[in-house]
């Protein structure tokens, strides 16, 4: 009984802030302004500009997920080999930026990368070529990687520290060299963390509209911006919700992949 009571607040939370909003989005997405059923809001994604925005978002978020993975895996290996505990200072440093507001950090990068920004002023001082990535897709990818990297590092690190040294030693005993040990033992065992990291980077990257506005200078339209525009400028909640549903399909696909590979929930980030 007491256990049930304890779960009460979470059930209220889940229903109030997850299930009902989700139901409202589905409801708005599948109805028109008069409240009648329609698929028009979903089909609206086929309009060339929106489709382009969706494809562009998919491309940018896939690229930044890949970069995050390439950066995060070796980093997680290094953290593991340092044999520092989870509470160590080095791990702490990687979590530290997440204590600061996401928006603030992104705005800071805008000032840093600006044509007359801090970085370019330093480069100019040393007569080095200027950095011209602000307001381009490269800047958006940079912003995504910077903001979401911890979400890739932590799940991979958490899985890696659970692989005991004896497992690795056993592999070496049985004649595997270090490359074989990595590809046949460590990598397969760390897959749950990798998959979890991919989802945790891919989903927010796919849906972001702030990064493209701040670092893309509003010049690059992502699907998040399209949806935002429907809510903020045209105040067409039905269309905005319909487009969100389309986006949700991609999120559900990545969740399904996660569920398939990470049955025991080993890849949890925290």
């Amino acid at each position: 009984m007491s256990k049930k009571l304890l779960s009460g607040p979470y059930i209220v939370w889940m229903v109030g802030f997850t299930l009902i909003p989700l139901a409202l989005i589905v409801f708005y997405g599948l109805t028109d302004k008069a409240g009648a059923f329609t698929l028009e809001n979903i089909m609206a994604i086929a309009q060339p500009e929106r489709l382009n925005a969706l494809l562009r978002s998919l491309k940018l978020s896939l690229v930044s997920t890949a970069i995050c993975l390439v950066l995060a895996y070796p980093l997680a290996m290094i953290l593991k080999s340092l044999k520092v505990g989870r509470g160590s200072f080095i791990v702490f440093i990687f979590i530290l930026p997440m204590w600061m507001n996401f928006l603030l950090r992104t705005m800071a990068w805008q000032t840093l990368l600006d044509h007359n920004g801090v970085i370019n002023n330093i480069l100019r001082f040393f007569n080095l070529p200027e950095l011209k990535i602000i307001n381009t897709q490269a800047a958006i990818i940079f912003g995504m990687v910077y903001n979401f990297l911890p979400f890739m590092v932590l799940p991979i690190y958490n899985v890696l520290v659970k692989i005991g040294d004896d497992t690795v030693e056993a592999a070496r005993d049985l004649g595997a060299n270090s490359v074989q040990t990595f590809f046949r033992v460590i990598l397969p065992l760390s897959m749950p963390g990798v998959i979890s990291g991919i989802t945790m980077v891919f989903v927010p990257a796919l849906t972001t509209f702030v990064i493209s506005d701040l670092l893309g200078g509003g010049m690059i339209l992502l699907i998040g911006n399209v949806i935002e525009q429907e809510f903020t400028f045209t105040t067409n909640w039905n269309l905005g919700s319909g487009l969100s549903l389309v986006l949700m399909v991609f999120i559900l696909i990545s969740m399904a992949i996660l569920a398939k590979y990470d049955k025991e929930g080993e890849g949890a980030a925290f």
């Binding site: 060339p48 500009e49 929106r50 382009n52 925005a53 509003g218 010049m219 690059i220 339209l221 911006n225 399209v226 525009q229 429907e230 400028f233 045209t234 105040t235 067409n236």
Partner: peptide, 18 residues
């Protein structure tokens, strides 16, 4: 509403370009 939708559509076309 229609005017807003028209502006919104054209704005999207502009932002999508380039």
């Amino acid at each position: 509403e229609e005017g807003d939708a028209l502006y919104s559509e054209m704005w999207m076309e502009i932002k999508d370009a380039g």
